Computed example of a mutant assay.
Amino acid sequence: MQNILETPVLLLDERRMQHNIERMQNRMDKLGVSFRPHVKTSKCLEVARRQIAAGARGITVSTLKEAEEFFRAGVEDILYAVAIVPNKLDHALKLIRAGLRLTLLVESVAMAEQVARHGAEHGVCYEVLIEIDTDGHRSGVKPADPMLLDIAAALQGGARLKGVMTHAGASYDLNTPEALEAMAEQERSRCVAAAMLLRGAGHACDVVSVGSTPTALSARHLDGVTEVRAGVYVFFDMVMADVGVCTRDEIAISVLCTVIGHQPAQGWIITDGGWMAMSRDLGHQAHGYGVVCDADGQPLPDLGFGKANQEHGVLQWRGDAGVDIVQRFPVGSSLRVLPNHACATGAQHGQYHVIPQNGGDWPVWPRFSGW
């Protein structure tokens, strides 16, 4: 099948994906928490359906476009896990009025006040989480910051405090089980502490939402947590393999490309899979633009991928200098590349060509993009 595909194309191994879905869901079930997968990784209805069938309760999105697309497909419980801003409130209002149970996120008093005011003006009560910074990675309010109570106090009238949420993105920089376990506990304990602070001040805080793929797969317990979110686990990628939460054999997506030429004097094999097919995300920079594999997906350690142009991938032969790379990798031959960052590579493509777990024809699953 792959020999007749016009490359570059994004391949999805259904068997690996299903294994990843079941692995995460089973772990969440054992830890006694709800699981709300982050669908920004796949942006694909067929993938999300399998996550929901496995036991997910609602989904997480990173754009209101995602919320709109998945709601149209029948998903009715969605967390928009990026701090809301004024120019998106009308879009959120439209979705809520259409029947979507949409939860918003804030991290400032000013935005909490605007959300509450907008809700009151339009006759709705927005359900809102406060983002908690548990690792200094990106955004949110520190668990003991007095501003936390000020934000909660501002969520009244047209808004209701639903709970707290955090994302331990710093876990992506770790690579030992001990460090990952410690980060998972830090994420849990600090988010729970924020919830307890709010409750102690008389605020309801029903939801305590944590999650990243590394911490979800490393937590020993999740006492005080009500739900976990994770996204990249559904496909995994080389960053996750380097972190240590998956093997290369569990990475479910790859980019199929074709050899289009050679520069034998420099040891280069040129493909039609440049950075437009892979993205410019170099991950931990250990693998260039990705890990090169043969047509069956087996890694080729003697081929590096350290250079790319928009539509050209420049692979470097690092093996025996006596090998004729033109004969070994002739024009027209197929290679596959495991991505550094599944979300970023997926965003370069409009569909998945699915390698079915039970054989037969390869279906095509659409994915969407945009905001």
Rank of each mutant, 00 (worst) to 15 (best):
E178H: 06
V239M: 10
Q348W: 05
F235K: 01
V75F: 15
A194Y: 08
M278Q: 14
M183L: 08
N20E: 03
Y233Q: 10
N309D: 13
R336M: 08
V245N: 09
N3H: 15
V109N: 09
L335S: 10
A116T: 04
G119T: 02
Y352L: 07
P339N: 05
V337K: 04
A120N: 15
E22I: 00
Q357I: 00
A83H: 15
E311Q: 14
G119C: 07
K65F: 10
S139A: 10
Q2A: 00
D294C: 09
E250K: 11
P177T: 00
G332H: 09
M278R: 05
I325E: 03
D242N: 13
S333H: 10
A252F: 13
V364E: 12
V82Q: 14
L315S: 08
A116V: 01
D361C: 04
R367W: 01
L256E: 07
V208F: 06
P356A: 03
G261Y: 07
K30V: 01
Y126M: 07
T41S: 14
N20C: 03
A194W: 04
D135V: 03
R97L: 06
R280I: 00
V106M: 05
G288D: 11
Q263D: 15
S139Y: 11
R15Y: 04
R49N: 13
A321D: 15
V85I: 02
M183W: 02
L217H: 04
Q186W: 10
T63F: 09
S62M: 04
Y233E: 11
E68M: 02
T213F: 09
A193G: 03
E181Y: 01
E250I: 02
Q114C: 04
R280H: 14
Q351G: 03
L11D: 12
D133V: 03
L148G: 08
Q351W: 03
M238G: 01
A277D: 05
V323Q: 08
Q348D: 08
V323R: 10
V354N: 04
Q348L: 07
H341L: 06
D361G: 11
G319F: 05
Q310H: 13
R57K: 13
C257W: 08
E66H: 07
E113H: 11
V106G: 08
R229D: 01
L198V: 02
V337A: 03
G231D: 10
V141R: 05
N87V: 06
L10F: 09
G119N: 06
L105V: 07
I132F: 05
E187L: 06
R190G: 08
H353M: 00
V39T: 14
Q266V: 01
Q266D: 14
L31A: 12
R50S: 13
W365H: 02
T63D: 07
N309Y: 13
G99V: 02
V128W: 13
E127K: 09
T176N: 06
Q285H: 14
G158T: 08
P143C: 06
D324E: 07
Q51W: 11
L155K: 12
D272N: 14
D90C: 02
M183H: 10
Y172T: 00
D133Q: 11
L174C: 12
I59P: 12
R190I: 00
A219Q: 10
I260L: 04
D13R: 12
T7Y: 05
V208L: 01
T166R: 03
M196C: 14
H341F: 12
V61Q: 02
L282V: 06
V291I: 09
T247V: 01
E311V: 12
M238N: 13
N87H: 15
M24R: 02
V239Y: 01
Q156T: 13
I130Q: 06
R336C: 12
